[in-house]
Each structure stands twice: as C-alpha cells, then as structure tokens.
Design a protein around this nucleic acid. Sequence first.
DNA 1: TATTTTACTTACTTAAAGGTAACTACTTAC
DNA 2: GTAAGTAGTTACCTTTAAGTAAGTAAAATA
Lengths: 113, 113
Amino acid sequence: MNQKEEVCQHKMLVTRDVLEVIQGKWRIPIIVALTFGNKRFGELQRDIVDISPKMLSQELKVLETNKIIKRKLYDSMPVTVEYSLTPLGLSMKKLLDEILDWGVHFRKEIIGK
Amino acid sequence: MNQKEEVCQHKMLVTRDVLEVIQGKWRIPIIVALTFGNKRFGELQRDIVDISPKMLSQELKVLETNKIIKRKLYDSMPVTVEYSLTPLGLSMKKLLDEILDWGVHFRKEIIGK
DNA sequence: TATTTTACTTACTTAAAGGTAACTACTTAC
DNA sequence: GTAAGTAGTTACCTTTAAGTAAGTAAAATA
C-alpha cells in the first residue's frame, strides 16, 4: 500500500467514527437547535418539528453518552431539565456551519433556489 | 415566531436536506475515496473495506442522481467505468475536511488518542 | 471451448431505525 | 379531587437500510 492509499484508508476510518456519532435523522438537528442556546425537553420538541418524545429522549441519551451535550436537572416546582452543548459539542460549530453552507449551495444547484 | 426562532427553523430545514443526501453508511466514504482521484468500480470496492457490490452500485446511483458524482463508460476491451466527482461533489471539500478535522479531535477526546 | 476480467444485478434475509399511541410520576393550581 | 404542565417511558409495529450469496453479460485471452 502506497502513501496515498494509506492516507485514504485513514481518512475513511475517521469518517466512519464521525458517522457513528452523527448518524440518524435527529442528532444533527438536535445539536443545531442547541447552538441557539440551552433548551428544555419541551422546547426541543417544539423546535424540532415532527420529533416524538421517544426519539428525542433516545437521541439525547446517545448524545450525552458521547459527551456532545449535557443534561442538567433543576428540581424546581414542575421539574425542569436543561440541555446544553459541552465543549466537545461546541467544537462541532465549524462542521455544522459547513453543513449549512453546503446545504444552501446544494439547494440552489439541485432543488433550484 | 421571533427572528431567532425563524433562523433556527431555516437552519433545521437545510440540515435535513443535507442529511438526505449524505445519509447512510457508505455515501461519505465513497465521496472521500473519490477525492483521491477518479476511480473504477473495482477500485472503489477495494478501497472501501467491507462494501458489497450491491451497496456500492446502489449508492453510486443515488450519488449520481444527486449530481455529486459522474459515471463515465469506456467501451474498452473489458468494459471499464470511471467515477469522478462533479463540481457539486468537489464543492463538498470543505465539509469533508471539517468532518475529518472534527473526527480527529473526537478520537482524541473520547476514544482517547 | 473454457477461463478471466469488469461491472454489475437479483432474490432473499436480517438488522437497525423510526413511528404511534398510550401510559407514568411528580407537583402545583383550581 | 381534578386538571394541567413538566419530562419522560413502554410496548408494539412498520419501514428502511444493509448484508449474503449467487448469477449475468460481454469481450478478450489461452
């Protein structure tokens, strides 16, 4: 295997790791929503149209496990929970921006404006 | 709905479009492989470890439909086919770089070096 | 004529992701 | 005591994604 092929193989490995973390219909939207500020369960459910409480709960857990988001419980009168991005989550900012940039570009090219 | 919420909703919409295009286990790896140069079906199969001809063929078709890659047939002695990135595919370079950058960062943080 | 090479396709199966609807637990307000 | 708001959970079902194994086609090579 030559130099170029080795670099290619390594990039593919890294890519797979990333995909495991961000894969699925809801994770990126959840992270994007949280870039607009910390939010409670109900707020996320309102912001992310069509997500069910089951999926939201499930994906929040995965993101927490991967240290992308943080869950904070306030034992106020009706219990409230606040979700926020961790430093690792915040470190996705540039990646998210590129997704959005390319998305806008893609819409113009394919979907046509 | 206030300004901030509208921006949030719009970003979420764009995100969903992007996810539809790059979703799945194999599409990003295929695109990454092609950033290393044009390749034939067999080469892609060798580069992308574990992909079956069925999945490769299927995903190449989707990427072609979305104008990310181009398929060129050479009617040489045993027929050969060359796949390459279109301008739209090439425009993903920065996005791919960010995926890789963040992936490297993520490995350090979570998987631990 | 049989084998190899290239690029797939097809039929079938399994596994993973996602959706739906109803329910839980706790507290406060009426 | 009943309803409403918080943040989920649970069981079940459907859909989609992915894997497996074998087969196809066309031409050149031996």
